[in-house]
Design a protein around this nucleic acid. Sequence first.
DNA 1: GCAGGAGCAGTGAACGTTCACAGACGGCCG
DNA 2: CGGCCGTCTGTGAACGTTCACTGCTCCTGC
Lengths: 354, 354
Amino acid sequence: MPNANGGQAATLNDVARLANVSRQTVSRVINNKAAVSPDTEQRVRAAIAELDYRPNSHARSLVTNRSLVLGLVVPSISQPYYPEIARGVEDGADEADYSVFLSHTGGDPARELRTLERLRDQRVDGVIICNSRLDDDELMHATSALSPVVLVNRRVPHASGTVIWMGYESGTVLAIAHLNALGRRRIAYLGYNYANRVDAARFRGYQTALQQVGIRFDASLVFRGGNSFQGGYDAMGLFHASGNEIDGLFASNDMMAIGAMRYALTHGIDVPGELAIVGFGGSDITSMVTPDLTTVSMPLYSIGITAVQELLQLLNGTSEQHRQLNIEPEILVRGSSVANMDPSDLLTRGGKEE
Amino acid sequence: MPNANGGQAATLNDVARLANVSRQTVSRVINNKAAVSPDTEQRVRAAIAELDYRPNSHARSLVTNRSLVLGLVVPSISQPYYPEIARGVEDGADEADYSVFLSHTGGDPARELRTLERLRDQRVDGVIICNSRLDDDELMHATSALSPVVLVNRRVPHASGTVIWMGYESGTVLAIAHLNALGRRRIAYLGYNYANRVDAARFRGYQTALQQVGIRFDASLVFRGGNSFQGGYDAMGLFHASGNEIDGLFASNDMMAIGAMRYALTHGIDVPGELAIVGFGGSDITSMVTPDLTTVSMPLYSIGITAVQELLQLLNGTSEQHRQLNIEPEILVRGSSVANMDPSDLLTRGGKEE
DNA sequence: GCAGGAGCAGTGAACGTTCACAGACGGCCG
DNA sequence: CGGCCGTCTGTGAACGTTCACTGCTCCTGC
């Protein structure tokens, strides 16, 4: 415990006294703002080291009006997909010497609202909100006191700040086109919640793609289930029991796709022979299942990085507001849609950037 | 923008002026500390609402010496396992009205050190560190200025604060005992880094268990690979090529186990018939692979909750320091070690809480 | 009728920084 | 040799709260 006065952290004044200079001089040294004579600087640094002094960020923020803290709000940190974004945000922030408040809302709008209030209380310098569950008005109001803001997967009318929009629609088109190219014609769509903007965008992509390749939309091939492995498994079971024949399946996310695939495999349906399956998300899991899952992949890590950079640019005015960045996905073709791929070949494909 | 003076957030003084009372009275209302007449309170609340006032937490922290913020440090947020802990921490903190700084270190000790410094700068009220990569001295020194501290999976001599220790050793004993009970005698151990404390603890468990069930330790059945799906796959390949016969395999974590299983399945080794496999971690993925993976499961979410509660108790002195909490794992028996389980039965087992 | 307490409100100082100044000192130029 | 500029350092105020007081009014009890 190199602290001077009984457990309390040393202050600028303590350092100044020890080094026989004024507060301001110490401040100058730690912020290396203005010129300080080498001799003085040396003395100050020695004092800082001796007292193990570190500036109090609260005091600093109070006067500078900047906290060097960002907020990241996600619905659920434990779902695959968000951790990867969070990692990007973390890395981007760390590099710029920012800290990150992580908050997860559990998909509960009330909790999201509470979280945003708290971030405001903490006077964070900016906020990244992923897949907000608030309705337009609430979101507008909550973020108006919270600028700048980067919204991931949510377009809000007249939002100041930047919107990062993932190509859910185009990604789904990719998936359906792939299934069509494989000669599949009866392609089912497995979603989870059409009231959800993201799921709705995918559904639009499904319809668009069908039209493009000249397949008539058949509402009986659209079904839904819970947003999980179990949900996909159960939904597939129900659908199968209905007796509808299909040779292709697109699922809204990887976990549901894997659940559906599991049902198929354990009920004598050959994948991909009889049924080709494509998931959405590009999560790690997809390369660990057998057969590995063809999936539409989003560059999640770099989305996180981009979000932070955009936020920092908004902060120092290097970027204009009202921008929209579109992120385009790619499709990772694997064993759940194309048979007889060399497994060792599969392993090297579809790796994520680090 | 209900703000009064041009974009700047309203302050206590603004509210006081508008409500025609003193700062202190407003303070009393927002902290509902002392008695305030109903009439006055009403006026103050109206003013707060009109100005959309929210207290500045920096100013508050400066004088109260509490920040209502906790720090959570993990090696990697995108690896399965940490998100679940983070979720627990988040939920526990949210309930107590605390915010959480999430920092991930990428397993880099230098970055971990930098992170801890930053948390200290931010004057967080407490820190949870998972699987610290620092050596004892560094960790001791870095945390001495950062109390209270909860250390997950790391025992440090004379650490003030609490240690949460997961039963790596006992969990591994569970796994080996299970394999032995199935009649497996040539049980291999697949690790990733024996210099790693956690991996070393598991290895001790392996040796202990062998001894308990009367199997002679055979060093040629111990091999290692990278800490990932690919690592498990490759290591299994090399081991297989060496011609060593085994009928049971324990892997240090789920991803490696799944990689090894994938290698076995794609190279004509029947799982679990010829080779029974047990992983470690209890991550979600394990129930999504085919066959689903028998795994040693840690109650990660509740560990996160526990860590926060412990921290908060240390904060208000309700818990004594130098405590060690041992978390005991359980084994989830599934298709990779026991064949012919009803798949729908499997689905309902091993689900996580929440 | 007055001491004492309860209920309510306000004042100055403090928390640990940075900011906008101002001052001291020496050297250079005209 | 006087004025001015550059380099270095110090001073008071401010940021937005809470804390420890003090002061006022009104009621109660003896």
